[in-house]
Design a protein around this nucleic acid. Structure first.
Length: 476
RNA sequence: UGAGGCGUAGCGCAGCUUGGUAGCGCGUUUGGUUAGGGACCAAAAGGUCGUGGGUUCAAGUCCCGUCGCCUCAACCA
């Protein structure tokens, strides 16, 4: 028991000090390390493997939607940013700028991209002439830089990895539909692959992307009840098309200005996984994106036949497409159990002489910590089913956690009480900026997303007639 | 950028009040033993005390500056 305590002390208590728990977990599980420059992170192999799995799943979805991958330059002329007034105002404070190249001061400073609407817009202007060129859908997987004041691995770093999709359409309806469709695709991915339930919908004007007509978001509830913006999809209307002169000759013979969208998710999703599923023992990774889905821990590894049996099992699981590791290190079995649990591996198999003799294996689920004995025969099929069960169990647990913490409020005191208790608070809103600002000032909660389809009688702030229902929450 | 906390061996920390040989636990290396929730014995290696300056015969310890990290607040995916 003393040793169990010793383990627990390695990471902060998840409920008593969640931020410290997060930092401890990401460092100790070797997902990430700090870079030498403030606000930068090194994504280590175990963390990068999660990103690769995210990329693989998402990229397939993009391609099904007719989106092609491309790559645009890191450096963007500063003048591009000034072409869209709201965009430059929104991003200027956090843009890093290159002013010297080859030892000489540059004639025009170059921005390190914080996002690529401007350069992609300028290229589209060149590439698009006819309605036959539309719709155009490109995506790039890349890094971007935003000079943030304070940072945290995966959640907010000055450089991060993401994908940014950009589409151009001949009419507003199609562009709006694309914006919505991408949001739905993100939601499907978040729920089915990451086991993270999300609320989706439109952002308020205040929270809208700089330069967009409308911003749609998916918001996820973290372990502590705070919200995390896990992905966004923007309808730009003709704002960027006008600024970058994206015009086409339509079938009716007239020149028209195009409509654009953009949408993105980032390595922040890794932070979302950690803060949604993690527990007092560390990470809990959803099987679909876990770098290692199953670890085999040999018991009495030196006894004859044990390692051989483990190797055979490993080969069988690998053959079935399961990402499996056999832990042949010298550490004691107990040490390995704790280590792999901290690293969030969904299924662990313990295999020793006793099991081999009986033709069985002991499988432990990371999500519930339950151990189940299963026959070695058809092991791959059993493990696959167990992984599937874990994946489903995770989303159900996360959904219950979130749904239990959605409350309603009709006055400011209730909003405050609600968010302080770690809830998402749904409240009526008259639609005015002053009331939205007041909620933020008095409760530190922001308007995360419109609760579409819901109605309340009055604005919880001013008491006037409510035009919308808003989900308020404190956020990362 | 505002408030608070922390920088001493790979990791976690003590030592600072009251200046005087650089310590502890874990880990690492070597040899041996080890069966199911962080094993055991023996030996060994490992330090410009974040950094720059000052005070002093003498600074991890006192003074001034500076850099970094963590938490909270403002900005953001």
């Amino acid at each position: 028991m003393a040793k169990e305590n010793q383990f627990v002390e390695q990471i902060a208590n998840i409920d008593a000090d969640f931020p410290q728990w997060y930092t401890d977990v990401v460092l100790k599980t070797k997902l990430v390390d700090y870079g030498p420059v403030k606000g930068t992170m090194v994504i280590r192999p175990y963390g990068y493997a999660i990103w690769e799995n995210i990329q693989k799943e998402m990229d397939a979805r993009f391609k099904k939607r007719g989106v092609e991958n491309a790559y645009f330059p890191l450096l963007i002329p500063m003048s591009y940013f000034t072409k869209e007034a709201e965009h430059v105002e929104g991003f200027a404070p956090e843009v890093a700028v290159v002013t010297i190249g080859g030892g000489e001061t540059l004639a025009e400073p170059l921005a390190i991209r914080p996002t690529s609407e401007t350069i992609i817009g300028s290229m589209c202007s060149k590439w698009i002439q006819s309605y036959r060129d539309l719709p155009m859908k490109v995506n790039q997987w890349c890094n971007v830089m935003r000079w943030e004041k304070t940072t945290r691995p995966f959640l907010r770093t000055s450089e991060f990895l993401w994908q940014e999709g950009h589409t151009v359409h001949s009419n507003a309806e199609e562009a709006e539909a694309e914006t919505q469709a991408m949001l739905q695709s993100y939601q499907e991915f978040a729920e089915n692959c990451l086991a993270i339930p999300v609320l989706t919908g439109r952002k308020t004007e205040k929270e809208r992307f700089a330069g967009a007509v409308a911003t749609y978001t998916m918001e996820a509830m973290m372990h502590d009840g705070k919200s995390l913006q896990a992905g966004t999809s923007h309808y730009m209307g003709q704002n960027f098309a006008t600024a970058f002169d994206i015009q086409f000759l339509d079938s009716d013979g007239t020149h028209k200005t195009a409509y654009t969208t953009s949408w993105g998710v980032s390595t922040r999703l890794i932070g979302a996984i950690i803060m949604t599923h993690g527990d007092e023992r560390g990470l809990v990774l959803p099987p679909v994106v876990a770098p290692i889905q199953c670890v085999i821990v040999p018991i009495a590894a030196r006894k004859e036949g044990v390692i051989e049996a483990c190797e055979a099992l490993k080969a069988e699981l690998e053959g079935a497409g399961i990402r499996v590791t056999l832990d042949k290190t010298d550490n004691s079995p107990g040490w390995k159990f704790n280590e792999w649990e901290m690293k969030g591996v969904p299924v662990r198999i313990e295999l020793g002489p006793r099991d081999i003799e009986a033709g069985k294996m002991l499988c432990a689920r990371r999500d519930t910590l339950e151990k189940v004995e299963m026959p070695l025969e058809n092991a791959a099929e059993s493990v696959k089913q167990l992984l599937d069960t874990v994946q489903k169990g995770l989303i159900e647990k996360a959904r219950k956690h979130r749904d239990d913490r959605i409350v309603y409020a009709d006055d400011m005191a209730s909003i405050l009480a609600g968010v302080e208790a770690g809830n998402f608070v749904k409240a009526g809103w008259c639609g005015c900026r002053a009331c939205e600002d007041k909620v933020k000032e008095e409760t530190a909660a922001t308007a995360r997303v419109y609760a579409e389809g819901e109605t309340r009688e009055t604005c919880a702030v001013c008491g006037k007639k409510a035009e919308h229902v808003i989900v308020f929450a404190r956020a990362y």
